[in-house]
Design a protein around this nucleic acid. Structure first.
Length: 468
RNA sequence: GGUCCCAUCGUCUAGUGGUUAGGACGCCGGCCUCUCACGCCGGUAACCCGGGUUCGAAUCCCGGUGGGAUCACCA
């Protein structure tokens, strides 16, 4: 059996959006799953809209997602000779012909057809004229007038198109450049691509492409047209309509593994499983379970998945992605061991890395910024006694362990006849400045004895000065 | 408008003739508990409509409705 060869052919006319990423993912996953090959091809023939920045943005986004390619990137603008050669071959074999009709003339034909209630099409005027190449001639493919072209699609099933519905479409412009359908097919043939997974907006192009394959006497690839991704308003997600770049998700603190997991599940399923590691996906992805209907992008669900991936990672894995976010706040987290402990306390309560970075702030500042309401409620003369006892007892500990800390608090609880909550909240505010934080013990242990005592003493001095 | 695609809880989906229609996100309760989370338990909520086929349809067929894609010397 021949190895699977797939591809992802973005147009560099903007950032890589979520829908494009999903298509890339499906192709990549299928190649990896089958130990095949995944090729990247940049379709940059639209000179007016293609930019080098977009090319970089696409590379960066794919790299961030962990989608690597085995071959390429190829650039269509560098393959003009190849297209020209194939077009000449088609003309020579009688499958295509030169046409000298001007755009105005073709428009007139379309209008005329429309006026007669017919489909607006080029009428084939130059088809048998035997014209040769000259300025302003285009090349058209001679398409059958009768019969049907059937697209055998892995996800949509068989779809039949009437050949009579297709006109002799242009494959080469008057300036000699190749049109999209021709370039794609020639690329796919010459690159050995045998499996094409793409958006179902291409389904209607497919019969035209099949005709080109046949005219070129090439084997047909396997097609799979996946449905579009819709935005919250149920409108199709596109670059100009609410589709965020994958770069945006990185900035918002999403993990690439979570984005991949979410994207793949949007239109593919494996029974009831929701959480997938990258390894799972490569192992389990298949074409048979691709969905046939469009799906709506749901940020909340992706966020929930992100939280699960954050929990599933180790602090060591998370740290490199968190550090820049800390740096944005002016925090230079230099002590890796400390940062790893910090991360561990925050993992179960962070849905995104951005959230985690914000929650981590109090660990790194010299003294926490006090929340006014929290301080007013918990840093009072009433709690000063408890805090003093805590500071003294903790300071005298030779081993700063959870066991010893528990003993310290147990004693205060007994001496003052208080529940743990009465001690924990003032302490929490003293340490973090707010009433919300990781658990007392894990937090203190991460922070260490000196900083703990320092912060409690500082809170006490604030109480003493009556400034809260 | 022509052509083509699609249709299960609000959302993502499982389901391939016989299920109390399952899971996940969200939402609502409860438990756990030093706060917030996590976790756990429970609840809310769906087969677009109408015809067939069949002993029996979410599943098969036809029609309707609704949504989407596409109709270029763009990709």
């Amino acid at each position: 059996m021949k190895p699977i060869v797939t591809r992802f052919p973005p147009s560099p006319t903007g950032f890589l959006h979520i829908g494009g990423a999903r298509t890339a993912l499906f192709n990549w996953l299928y190649a990896r799953k089958t130990a095949g090959k995944f090729i990247l091809r940049i379709e940059d023939t639209d000179a007016a809209r293609s930019t080098a920045d977009s090319v970089d943005a696409i590379f960066n986004a794919l790299q961030w997602l962990g989608i690597d390619w085995d071959e390429g990137p190829y650039f269509q603008t560098q393959r003009k000779d190849i297209y020209a050669r194939h077009i000449e071959k088609l003309v020579a074999s009688g499958h295509a012909y030169y046409c000298s009709c001007t755009p105005d003339e073709v428009n007139a034909m379309r209008e005329a057809a429309r006026a007669n209630g017919l489909k607006p099409m080029y009428n084939g005027r130059c088809r048998e004229r035997g014209l040769s190449k000259s300025d302003n001639t285009v090349v058209r493919l001679k398409t059958p007038d009768t019969g049907v072209t059937v697209v055998e699609d892995m996800v949509k099933g068989d779809t039949a198109f009437q050949n009579a519905e297709m006109d002799d479409f242009i494959i080469q412009r008057s300036d000699g450049s190749a049109m999209y359908n021709l370039a794609v097919v020639v690329d796919d043939i010459t690159m050995g691509i045998n499996t094409i997974i793409r958006g179902d907006d291409h389904l209607i192009n497919t019969p035209k492409q099949i005709l080109i394959y046949k005219a070129l006497d090439a084997d047909l690839p396997v097609f799979g047209h996946v449905p579009m991704v819709l935005g919250q308003d149920k409108a199709r997600l596109s670059k100009r309509h609410g589709a965020m770049s994958v770069e945006e998700y990185r900035k918002m603190g999403y993990l690439p593994d979570a984005v991949i997991n979410y994207l793949v599940r949007l239109g593919w399923s494996h029974g009831d499983q929701e959480f997938f590691t990258r390894k799972d996906l490569i192992e389990k992805f298949d074409l048979a379970h691709l969905g046939r209907s469009a799906s709506m992008f749901d940020m909340q669900k992706m966020t929930a998945l992100n939280a699960r991936h954050i929990q599933a990672k180790s602090a060591q894995e998370l740290a490199p992605a968190l550090l820049p976010l800390l740096k944005d706040q002016g925090i230079a987290a230099e002590d890796d061991t400390f940062t790893h402990k910090v991360i561990e306390t925050l993992q179960p309560r962070s849905k995104t890395l951005v959230e985690m970075a914000a929650s981590a702030r109090f660990y790194y500042v010299d003294a926490p910024e006090l929340d006014e309401k929290a301080a007013a409620k918990f840093l009072t003369p009433d709690t000063a006694g408890i805090l003093t006892r805590a500071a003294d007892a903790i300071e005298s500990l030779t081993d700063f362990t959870q066991e010893n800390l528990e003993a310290v608090f147990k004693k205060i609880m007994a001496d003052c006849d208080l529940g743990f909550g009465k001690i924990a909240q003032p302490l929490r505010v003293a340490i973090t400045g707010t009433t919300v934080s990781p658990g007392i013990f894990e937090m203190l242990l991460a922070l260490g004895k000196d900083k703990t005592v320092y912060r409690i003493r500082r809170a006490l001095s604030i109480i003493a000065s009556g400034s809260s």
